[in-house]
Simulated assay, not measured.
Amino acid sequence: MSTKNEILPLTGLRFIAALYVFLFHMQINWPFAPRGMVKKVIEQGAVGMSVFFVLSGFLLAYQYSGRYEDKKAYFVKRLARIYPIYVVAALSTLPWMWRGQDFSIWDTAAIVLTNIFVLQAWVPNYFNFWNNGGSWSISVEVFCYAVLPFIAPWMAGLSKRKLMVFAVLLYVWCVVPGQVGRHFPDLQFSFFYALPAFRLPEFLLGACGFFAAQRGFRFSRPNLVVVLILVIFIVLIKRRVSGLPYIGYNWMLIPAVVGLIVSLCQSSGRISSVLSCGLFVWLGKISYCFYSFQALVLLLLMKYHSGMVDAFPILNANWVLCVLAFAILICLSALGHHFIEEPCRRKIQLWSDSRSQRAAEKKEVCVI
């Protein structure tokens, strides 16, 4: 189910999370889901972002376990992985940056600079600007990436009991914002939902899941656990909860996601097999582009929807529009992954490796 640096079911799960968020955004703008359970589940698709954060924590702890000493190499790899597509996605949505808002030159400069340095999630007022608010999660991820190499060695050294205590503290940390927001309705939703400090515990709980599995934690029947977690998730997610939307579900969502990730790693059942098949692994590989280019597709549909419906009346059926948007997004994501993301990643990595090699050679000459 896995290669040396890749756990195949989790690669497939990345696409499922991205698809869930995409369906959620389509449902907001062009409701297409039938009434009942399906509609209620899709309407909570923003919880897919928590899946991303927990999954990232687990996978990075797995990929870099015991190799955090070279922090420069770690950060270069992370930068090479996310920044090229991040820039392309931002530039592609530049015409919609202001979206009818009258910004001063200083406001515009602040928005541009915070986005260039991926700091926009720290400023709640910037949530909806540029890339249709779709880049806040990358800002959160960058913060989590920065924290991991400093805290992971400490986590790796914890005893099983201390790791469990730390996981409980993280759980409380990620549950509290969604509940506190209910008592402070005047504070911005984006403050609780997007602030990196409030999403960091989700990422670190993913890392805790990896360290627990690394130390021998194993479900006795992982195939059954996968099914039970999915059923429980569907049953609970369709119910209303107190607190803020989406992160108000963290009390049950985060343990379920951590459990799902660990059980998928240990499972050999049908769900794990499907997520490990070639198609889903490929979809998982393009999932970052799929997520990043959602805003462009949505903005284009908003602008040209009326004209498209006039030309093709069948698009008046929102589910048909959703299928079309999905197909366009898959094509854009494939192109972005194969012609931008991967080539840029390799070039940045080669450039960094060559610089490191030259520096090492120069140091060796100086020593001699």
Results as ranks from 00 to 15, higher is better:
residue 1 M to Y: 12
residue 4 K to I: 15
residue 6 E to W: 10
residue 8 L to F: 10
residue 8 L to K: 11
residue 11 T to D: 04
residue 21 V to S: 00
residue 25 H to L: 01
residue 26 M to Q: 15
residue 32 F to Q: 13
residue 34 P to A: 08
residue 35 R to S: 12
residue 36 G to R: 04
residue 41 V to T: 14
residue 45 G to I: 02
residue 50 S to V: 11
residue 56 S to W: 00
residue 58 F to I: 01
residue 60 L to I: 05
residue 62 Y to H: 07
residue 62 Y to I: 00
residue 63 Q to K: 12
residue 66 G to A: 00
residue 70 D to H: 07
residue 70 D to F: 00
residue 77 K to V: 02
residue 78 R to F: 13
residue 79 L to C: 15
residue 82 I to L: 15
residue 84 P to F: 05
residue 87 V to H: 04
residue 88 V to H: 04
residue 98 W to Y: 12
residue 98 W to I: 11
residue 102 D to Q: 14
residue 103 F to L: 10
residue 104 S to K: 15
residue 105 I to R: 15
residue 106 W to N: 15
residue 107 D to M: 15
residue 110 A to T: 15
residue 113 L to P: 12
residue 115 N to F: 02
residue 116 I to E: 02
residue 117 F to G: 10
residue 121 A to Y: 09
residue 123 V to G: 09
residue 127 F to K: 15
residue 131 N to M: 13
residue 135 S to I: 12
residue 136 W to L: 05
residue 141 E to K: 09
residue 143 F to C: 12
residue 146 A to C: 14
residue 148 L to W: 08
residue 151 I to A: 13
residue 152 A to E: 12
residue 153 P to N: 09
residue 155 M to F: 13
residue 159 S to L: 05
residue 161 R to G: 13
residue 170 L to E: 14
residue 170 L to I: 09
residue 172 V to N: 01
residue 177 P to Y: 03
residue 179 Q to W: 13
residue 180 V to H: 07
residue 186 D to W: 09
residue 189 F to K: 07
residue 194 A to S: 12
residue 195 L to D: 01
residue 196 P to C: 06
residue 197 A to Q: 04
residue 206 G to N: 01
residue 207 A to G: 08
residue 207 A to I: 07
residue 211 F to K: 02
residue 212 A to E: 00
residue 216 G to K: 04
residue 224 L to F: 13
residue 231 V to K: 02
residue 234 I to W: 09
residue 239 R to T: 14
residue 241 V to A: 11
residue 242 S to L: 12
residue 246 Y to W: 15
residue 248 G to H: 05
residue 260 L to T: 04
residue 270 R to I: 14
residue 272 S to V: 06
residue 273 S to W: 06
residue 274 V to Q: 06
residue 276 S to R: 05
residue 289 C to L: 01
residue 291 Y to P: 03
residue 293 F to W: 13
residue 295 A to S: 15
residue 301 L to S: 11
residue 302 M to P: 01
residue 306 S to M: 04
residue 307 G to R: 00
residue 309 V to P: 05
residue 309 V to T: 08
residue 312 F to G: 00
residue 315 L to R: 04
residue 326 F to P: 04
residue 326 F to A: 04
residue 326 F to V: 03
residue 327 A to I: 07
residue 332 L to Y: 02
residue 333 S to T: 07
residue 334 A to Q: 09
residue 340 I to H: 08
residue 341 E to L: 07
residue 341 E to D: 14
residue 344 C to R: 05
residue 344 C to I: 01
residue 347 K to P: 01
residue 349 Q to V: 12
residue 360 A to P: 00
residue 365 V to R: 00
residue 367 V to E: 11
residue 367 V to A: 08
